[in-house]
Design a protein around this nucleic acid. Sequence first.
DNA 1: TTACATGCAAACTGTTTGCAAATAT
DNA 2: ATATTTGCAAACAGTTTGCATGTAA
Lengths: 137, 137
Amino acid sequence: MSLHETELAGRLRLAGLRPTRQRLSLAQILFGSGDRHVSAEALHQEALAAKINVSLATVYNTLNQFKAAGLLREVAFEGDRSFFDTNTSNHFHYYLEETGGLVDIGTETLEVTGLPALPDGTEIDRIDIIVRLRKTV
Amino acid sequence: MSLHETELAGRLRLAGLRPTRQRLSLAQILFGSGDRHVSAEALHQEALAAKINVSLATVYNTLNQFKAAGLLREVAFEGDRSFFDTNTSNHFHYYLEETGGLVDIGTETLEVTGLPALPDGTEIDRIDIIVRLRKTV
DNA sequence: TTACATGCAAACTGTTTGCAAATAT
DNA sequence: ATATTTGCAAACAGTTTGCATGTAA
């Protein structure tokens, strides 16, 4: 699923972002081929490998701008590393401890029941679920 | 629920850790009064406030040792900050976006159903659930 | 007395920021 | 022409580590 540059440019404009060369390239990598989970570092490497000149700082800025625009979601995570997910719909994740990889879990069937009463004056923003998988021994 | 020094010392010895002054003091703060969620920085401040001389590095080392020994659990988190939880049983968390605080959710009632089949050769290590709460408007 | 623990400062990692040069409108 | 974006390097926060000194066994 590769996307036309005009289509990508449109998405960026809608988000109030100028469709610059760097943003278009990063958008193409991110949105051009199904759902993805990337770290800033990984995306930077991928861009360089594709002969696209982008600085790591710009990758970070772009990811944050895309996130603010609702084009990406940041995935909660233990430790230092932060992932960005091109699937912005409500869904959860398997985390493969062995490889450090993330895999989507569809919400079609998954359900959480039995939440106790919420503290007064609060409502649910969203629920993050990470199912940590280890290799079978 | 303040604990005797001998009782704490015993716990530490069981974990293969020498009951040093610093470890005993930190253990007293951590385990002396019900379930707690602390960041390294917060624990360090608390120790200093209680006139206990500990360096931040020792706080980190101690937290990691306690965690390795199963006395603490690290709580998965978005962003940079890492929390340690004195409740090591299987339970989940409310995250109060407003204050940045964590609150335990008991597992008595909470259930997750409808997980799709796990990838081959894997089994569930554990499930982390964070229910993000926002202030009602 | 010997192995382990501590404190400090320096190192390290992931991320953000300030500013001059480049680019989109 | 003007406002925004980029790249770089420097700054930053949280955490870890190396090593000399101190302490538990």
